[in-house]
Amino acid sequence: MRIALVLTGIALSLAAPFFVYPVLLMTILCFVIFAASFNLLLGYAGLLCFGQAMFLGLSAYMTGLMLKTTGMSIELAILASALISAALGAFVGFVAVRRSGIQFAMITFAFAQFVYFLLLQSEFTGGEDGMQGIPRSNLFGIFDISDSMTFYYFVLAATLLVILLVYRIVHSPFGEILQAIRDNEVRVESLGFRPERFKILAMTISAGLAGLAGGLKATVFGFATLTDVSWTVSGEVILMTLLGGLGTLSGPMVGAGIIIVMNDELAQFGEWALIAQGIILILVILFMRRGVVGEAGALIRRIRSRKAN
């Protein structure tokens, strides 16, 4: 059943660009990665980072800078930028993980605002105008993937790799400790672990993945803007995660898809997009605690157990 779902998903995503505008699809994929990175923190380590956009945005600018000023191949530029974001994540983690709950959220938020300010003031980012004309250099320095259709498959491959990686991390010895920390940090400490170190590593990995999303996004659109670093994007990823289902692997990815498509559909109505997001958030919190995927899973289990009886 699960395998069938996964295979259908892959088949659909392979065929999708023939039916749907590839840039929209690629945007969804970037946010799938971004949401997965956030879910690793909130869903599995219990850390509410309210500044996830700093990792996305910083890496977007870094990727842009490298592609514009050096002849780096595209995958190297994105990877290097993701590493820079990971380093930022390690640093923010180092400062913030001793705090928990709302304090942790506030510290990460403060860092994100600071990064926003730095990028706004920096010359190379183009300030308010953003960084334009980011080229798509050759993959591995040889393959031309600049055409949208080809590029889509590159982004898709990257996304699938990230999903596999997150799956592996969540179902690893480390992942088990992380979940234990989420459930009861004091107990984990009393068993001889240093929870703060595990949380720093989780922050580092999560920031790196968010950076990957940012680098891809910059090459998808060919530009990077301050929006990518803004707190609205940090908030949006929380919405995606809750809407899809916290702590389920696929939930946040589904949530990312729904929000991006909705933003796209509602774009013509301007402010209304935001209001619609707010209303959805309220409805989800009130009626779908487990998110779309979580509720669907619960429904299936209920039907099954009824059949079994």
Partner: peptide, 23 residues
């Protein structure tokens, strides 16, 4: 899993985020 978390404390596997849980 609860007990296994504690067993991992002296097993030295706790950092392996790249290993499958079957390890």
């Amino acid at each position: 899993q609860n007990v296994r978390v504690a067993l991992q404390s002296s097993h030295g596997s706790a950092w392996r985020f790249w290993s499958p849980i079957s390890s």
